[in-house]
Amino acid sequence: MADALLSIRDLAVSFQGREAGGSRPLRGVDLEVGPGEVHALVGESGSGKTLTATCVLGLLPVPPARIEAGSIRFQGRELLGLAERERRKLRGRRIGMVFQEPSKYLNPSMRVGEQIVEALILHLGLSRRGARARAAELLELVGLPGGRQILRRYPHELSGGMRQRVMIAMAVSCEPALLIADEPTTALDVTLQRQILRLLLELRDRLGMAVLFVSHDLAVVHGISERVSVIYCGKIVESGSRERVFGRPLHPYTQALLASVPEASRRGTRLAAIPGTVPDAAHVPAGCAFHPRCPLAVEKCRLEVPALLDYAAGPPGRAPAGGEAGASSHLAACHLAGRS
């Protein structure tokens, strides 16, 4: 897709470590986020979802990490190999970020107002007075009325939900084209979670930014996303519209994940649990990484890594989907996809 806002192609990352040969937590990630799109990246712990986001933000610790291969293009510009000074300009200005635990990213000894004001002065070159006024507006925008009072508070004087709102206000302060939200509601109670999800959608509509929403929670992803990519062992195994991925999942891993979620409608039935555990990045199985846990695996799955192909219009063409994943595409990396 030529007009993708963010295009990650074949991204591979390795870590040197105690294990001989190190580990490869990302083994060729392909991901495209269109302008203004809410794109969810779903996976279990250790799947590489947060690491992918970290690479986009340019926050990968090198060493011990190493980018082995691949490309990350943002607004048509290659990010890998860009000087740190340039990366820092993009981060915060064009790419905002929100994390699970806002306390970790807010300076505890600084009033929250000052933290927002500093970011505005740094990135937008506003005057201090102008930045203060804008900061108060931003807090109103994220649902913290009486912003001026909150500006004078320290992070510890705010509730968890308020801190997350402040974090979101900072993230959108420069009206970024892309917001990376990594498990932004995982630490919050359900009533608060819904408010924050609504806020993110509201801000997306108002500011026209795209959101890369990283989460392990399928129900939350179902509630918020337009497109969904499922990641397993450092590779995207399925990617498509919310309706397709939840309604007609192609990959056995996606199917199994969806079947394993407890809900009232499944009362009295056993959940379809996935046997075994997620392999760690130093011991990824050969062939399709999911094959040891897959009920359908055949010999080919043990030997050959399946390519990510487009099944939107029936059986895929021979060319891999790379480079032309349109908005209507439904990609899957499975030798048996679409056969059923």
Partner: peptide
């Protein structure tokens, strides 16, 4: 408030 696999998409409405 609970997100569900069978539920609707969340409406972007600020409370």
């Amino acid at each position: 408030s609970v997100p569900r696999l069978t539920g609707e998409r969340i409406a972007p409405k600020m409370e």
